[in-house]
Design a protein around this nucleic acid. Structure first.
Length: 418
RNA sequence: CGGGGUGUAGCGCAGCUUGGUAGCGCGGCUGGUUUGGGACCAGUAGGUCGUAGGUUCGAAUCCUAUCACCCCGACCA
């Protein structure tokens, strides 16, 4: 991609409402813009990072036999009334009527819709277990959206659902998701932990949360030395104590703040019972299916990753999240045809090597280009100016360790590949 | 919903107390000089002062209502 075709929207100042570093940097780096409270437009750079995360998740879920579908975001109230949540779910559920005066809501989660889907198409244990996921926008009318996309009203979430003939099957699938999630967050190079959790509004009987450890996290975690533990809600129940300090004193655990990026639940038969999702089992008996559900907050991961990966220059992406493999910073290409030609050559040979490159062909000064790409967080910076065009080389600069070296195109390609 | 705060150019802000010509920095555009780390000079565009009503000869400024946004709290995959 060339910047002339791939607009970047960096800016120096940041609106005073952006409190946390990830929110500030996402605005400065031109990843998001606010539409209204808790609602954000994703600009090209930001969307690219979302796609990276999505693909890591897709790969890991496909690996455990989970297949992608896509469900409508506007859901009829009938299903929610059937499950009982139309009355339970409070004002977080955004409700409205269509032209026929029929009640609908914007989907905050999809247990009802998928249970309806499966009960219509699955009738035998022979069709189970079954694992489906989707990646889509969810809407929750949060009391107080904050911290940019960290707690937004509209956000992108991966939600997966599993269906089983028995508790044992659910149990073993639950463990599969747990390990798949562990792989996903490891691959994204996030510093995270898994804690015991409360199943909240979703229902069910067992649940784990995946938290990115960060000062700006909204959740309180109580962890042992190996960073295993539970969230505060569970700790209060378990130790019959409402004060964090007292729990720490009694148990020797440490208190950390976490950003909840994943949550897995064993739903059991809660929804299959209320919504009559039945199958015939091996013994020719009609039973309610067992279900699990498994969420990952994709847009929240973007913010969480930035909370963990930033410095005075801006964002410093871990490799799997980095929006481009490298940037070509051209000096005076608009004035010197030789420089322009050499840049094009380097760009084309990198494309041939399957590298995802952004070529900054703007007519702005070197310093501006550096500042922009260091802010956006690319680690591999390729400089091409007069010297390089004469020598038929490039100068490679590494954002993290500040090294700078003139080298051949072949060497540079190998370095960028890492 | 309770408490607090803010709405003035794309962004950051001043002006409001004490009513009288709409300002500054950054950013944008044009021209020139620059150019290996956010350059400089000159010029220029851009504002129903959130909205509606009221007081007044006159309102960004005072009064009332309303909307939006932010912070603290309660709530929450």
């Amino acid at each position: 991609m060339k910047v002339s075709n791939f607009p970047i929207f960096t800016q120096k100042d940041v609106p005073s409402e952006a409190e946390v570093i990830s929110h500030q940097l996402m605005i400065k780096a031109g990843m998001i813009r606010k539409l209204s409270s808790g609602q954000y437009t994703w600009l090209p750079i930001g969307l690219k990072i979302i796609k990276k995360i999505e693909n890591v998740i897709r790969k890991a879920l496909n690996h455990i036999g989970c297949v992608e579908i896509l469900m409508p975001s506007v859901q009829p109230s009938e299903l929610w009334k059937e499950s009982g949540r139309w009355d339970q779910y409070g004002p977080e559920l955004l409700r409205f009527k269509d032209r026929h005066d029929r009640d609908f809501c914007l989907g905050p989660t999809f247990e009802e819709v998928i249970t309806d889907l499966i009960r219509k198409d699955v009738s035998s244990y022979k069709q189970l277990p079954l694992n489906l996921f989707q990646i889509s926008s969810k809407f929750r009318d949060e009391i107080r959206p904050r911290f940019g996309v960290m707690r937004a009203r509209e956000f992108i979430m991966k939600d997966a659902y599993s269906f089983h003939e028995s508790q044992e099957s659910l149990d073993s699938t639950y463990e599969l998701y747990k390990s798949a999630y562990t792989n996903i967050f490891q691959e994204l190079m996030l510093d995270f932990t898994i804690v015991d959790a409360d199943s909240g509004n979703i229902g069910g009987n067992e649940s784990n949360e995946f938290h990115v450890i960060a000062e700006t996290g909204e959740d309180d975690l109580l962890l042992d030395n190996n960073l295993n533990g539970m969230n505060f809600e569970i700790a209060k129940l378990k130790y019959k104590e409402n004060d964090i300090q007292s729990i720490i004193k009694d148990t020797g655990m440490v208190h950390k703040k976490g950003i909840e990026v994943g949550h897995i639940f064993k739903l059991g038969q809660k929804y299959s019972e209320s919504m009559k999702a039945k199958i015939t089992n091996k013994d020719s008996k009609i039973i309610n299916m067992f279900m699990g559900c498994y969420g990952i907050g994709i847009t929240r991961i973007v913010a969480a990753a930035i909370e963990q990966n930033n410095d005075e220059k801006g964002i410093s992406w871990p490799k799997p999240l980095c929006p481009f493999d490298a940037v070509i910073i051209e000096i005076d290409g608009d004035k010197n045809i030789e420089i322009r030609k050499h840049s094009e050559d380097v760009y084309n040979s990198m494309l041939k090597n399957q590298l995802d490159i952004i070529y900054d062909d703007r007519k702005v000064s070197l310093g501006n280009k550096f500042k922009d790409w260091e802010l956006i967080g690319l680690n591999n910076i390729i400089i091409i100016g007069k010297n390089e065009s004469i020598n038929k080389t490039v100068t490679y600069k590494n954002r993290k360790n500040e090294t700078k070296e003139e080298m051949s195109i072949e060497n540079m390609v190998n370095v960028v590949r890492g």
